[in-house]
């Protein structure tokens, strides 16, 4: 996270830190319409998920934490054809790990650990909440455990681009010295939504849930590295502040970023006659 003194964003923390947003190893469950077997996960600890929703396992003094019924929790990520995307941030399967500087093997190990947050949560849903008709869908991912190939990463490296897009450009686009709003190939309208509930380290993090923003345009200069030529950066690695990543990480924005990267590449090749 960037410091407010670096970015000029009022709600940023005072001091920079190296905390990124939680990731989620999503599972897609299928309603098989009957009780289906599933292997019990190792080291299952129901207390991790006790207050994920209103249920008898949630201790009396913590019931305030459990805000939704188990049905509402499952319907959060309900998909067509009686499937359920399990991506539940409240004592669910959000997981903290920063993989950016890890090597391939270290990442594989870390992601195995991330799955060990998701599979026990699925087990909790089956065992404690009574949904033994739900199990990982057998017709979604061609993997041994029927889980996706990769988790949902919310935050990536953020490159130093030709411009750095801050929350101030979103909230007061016309009052900034640089008129970035004139240069936007992509749009977004989702609030700053940061997931940090799985982080348990020492840093104190600001409360950033759903900080509201108006609809915004994302400037092209966020895709172009400041110092390296011949490279255009897409996905979530664009030149934005940590806070802005909470709004630009959403799929509608990220898909448009990819499209803008492709179009810019074509333009540059055309200009240089290649």
């Amino acid at each position: 996270m960037d410091s407010r003194y670096d970015t000029g964003e009022e709600i940023a923390p005072e001091r920079a830190n190296n905390i990124i947003q939680d990731l989620t190893y999503v599972a897609v469950l299928k309603d098989y319409g009957r009780e289906v077997p599933m292997a019990a996960p190792e080291g299952y600890d129901p207390s991790l998920f006790a207050c994920s929703c209103i249920n008898p396992v949630c201790p009396g003094d913590e019931t305030e934490k459990a805000r939704w019924s188990s049905e509402a929790m499952l319907n959060y990520g309900r998909l067509p054809n009686n499937k359920y995307m399990i991506n539940w941030p409240l004592s669910g399967n959000d997981y903290y790990v920063n993989l950016t500087e890890m090597g391939t093997r270290e990442r594989e190990k870390a992601l195995k650990d991330a799955k060990q947050r998701t599979l026990p949560f699925v087990w909790f849903i089956r065992n404690e909440l009574g949904y033994s008709n739900l199990a990982p869908a057998d017709d979604e991912f061609p993997t041994a455990d029927s889980l996706p190939f990769i988790p949902y990463y919310r935050e990536s490296r953020r490159i130093h681009g030709k411009v750095r897009f801050t929350l101030n450009h979103i909230t007061e686009p016309y009052d900034q010295p640089d008129k970035l709003y004139r240069t936007c190939p992509a749009v977004g309208d989702y609030p700053v939504d940061h997931h940090h509930s799985a982080y348990t380290g020492p840093a104190t993090l600001p409360d950033l849930s759903f900080y509201p923003v108006p609809s915004f345009g994302l400037p092209l200069g966020t895709l172009i590295p400041e110092e390296v030529d011949g490279l255009i950066v897409a996905e979530k690695s664009i030149s934005v502040t940590n806070l802005v990543n909470g709004a630009t990480r959403l799929r509608p924005v990220v898909l448009q970023i990819g499209q803008a990267a492709g179009r810019q590449t074509w333009k540059e090749l055309k200009i240089s006659g290649l």
């Binding site: 990536s156 390296v228 490279l231 255009i232 950066v233 897409a234 979530k236 590449t265």
Partner: peptide
């Protein structure tokens, strides 16, 4: 290639 797009999840190609 004269130009490259990094669309990896974690910016590995940029690095």
């Amino acid at each position: 290639s004269p130009i490259l797009i990094d669309a990896t999840e974690l910016g590995d190609i940029s690095k």
